[in-house]
């Protein structure tokens, strides 16, 4: 009985989480112009979407900024976490962490406004570069927070053992530490990716000179009511993320099988 209830609850939660997305996608096939009534099936909104080269360029820009910024932020953030973890002085470590957390909790609007002032003061033109830099900046603290717990879990005896067996510092990093914390690195990367994809407040301030991202564009269109082209776009993006998650799962499964086989061969 209890198990059944738990299952029902789980299903209910998933329905609530996914219903709005499904609703949005269903309406992307509606012949009408708004989301008030469903008017029969059509591919029209997808056609307008794929012939809207400005929109497609914005999608490409958004993905580019998201991937590149989270990649760079992951590199910097991981290195940062490593060095925070290595600091033995407690006060220094705590204050470093606090400084990191302040960036996490400060409102996006403030960060965005300060970036705008910063960039214009340094005469850095607003556009791709300014958006990329500000995204990297607000993603680094997230990566640090995701990687640090993994580092804490790592037992120092493992490192000692590796050193006893003659591992150089480089080998220690690449063959012991990085493999161990890689789940944290991946989590940090994906968190950074999603933060970048849906950030509006910071991005709004630092876009300019023809460069724009999806969230800014969609938000500005809302004055006239969201048209169904946006629904079509959401449908495509949803499919894209499904494929991404599916691909990630497939890669993991494949590598697990490979490891399994190796172990069998070894024994």
């Amino acid at each position: 009985m209890k198990q059944k209830l738990a299952k029902v609850y789980l299903i209910l939660v998933f329905i609530i989480l996914y219903a709005p997305i499904i609703f949005l996608i269903v309406y992307s096939f509606s012949q009408g112009e708004t989301m008030t009534n469903y008017h029969g099936f059509t591919w029209r909104h997808y056609q307008t979407l794929f012939s809207d080269s400005r929109m497609l360029a914005i999608v490409a820009n958004t993905l580019l900024v998201a991937l590149l910024s989270s990649l760079i932020a992951t590199l910097i953030g991981t290195l940062g976490a490593l060095s925070i973890n290595r600091t033995t002085k407690r006060v220094t470590r705590e204050s470093l962490l606090t400084l990191n957390n302040v960036l996490m909790v400060s409102p996006d609007v403030i960060i965005g406004a300060s970036f705008l002032i910063f960039f214009t003061m340094l005469k850095i033109p607003l556009g791709f570069g300014s958006v990329l830099m500000s995204h990297i900046a607000f993603e680094i603290p997230i990566v640090v927070l995701m990687v640090l717990p993994r580092l804490r879990e790592m037992s120092s005896s493992m490192l000692d053992a590796a050193q006893d067996l003659g591992a150089t510092t480089r080998q220690l990093l690449s063959q012991v530490i990085i493999p161990f914390i890689s789940p944290g690195i991946f989590a940090g990367f994906f968190m950074a990716l999603t933060y970048s994809l849906d950030d509006f407040a910071v991005t709004f301030f630092v876009t300019g000179n023809g460069f724009s991202t999806l969230s800014v564009e969609i938000y500005s269109r809302a004055r006239q009511g969201i048209n169904l082209e946006i629904n079509a776009l959401s449908g495509v993006m949803f499919l894209f993320s499904l494929l991404l998650v599916g691909g990630y799962y497939w890669i993991q499964q494949a590598s697990r099988k490979r490891k399994h086989r190796k172990r069998e061969v070894a024994s």
């Binding site: 360029a57 490409a60 580019l64 991937l67």
Partner: peptide, 11 residues
């Protein structure tokens, strides 16, 4: 990323 940059500039 390279592919995206190329396609966005093409677009």
């Amino acid at each position: 990323c390279g592919l995206l940059a190329y396609s966005s500039s093409q677009l």
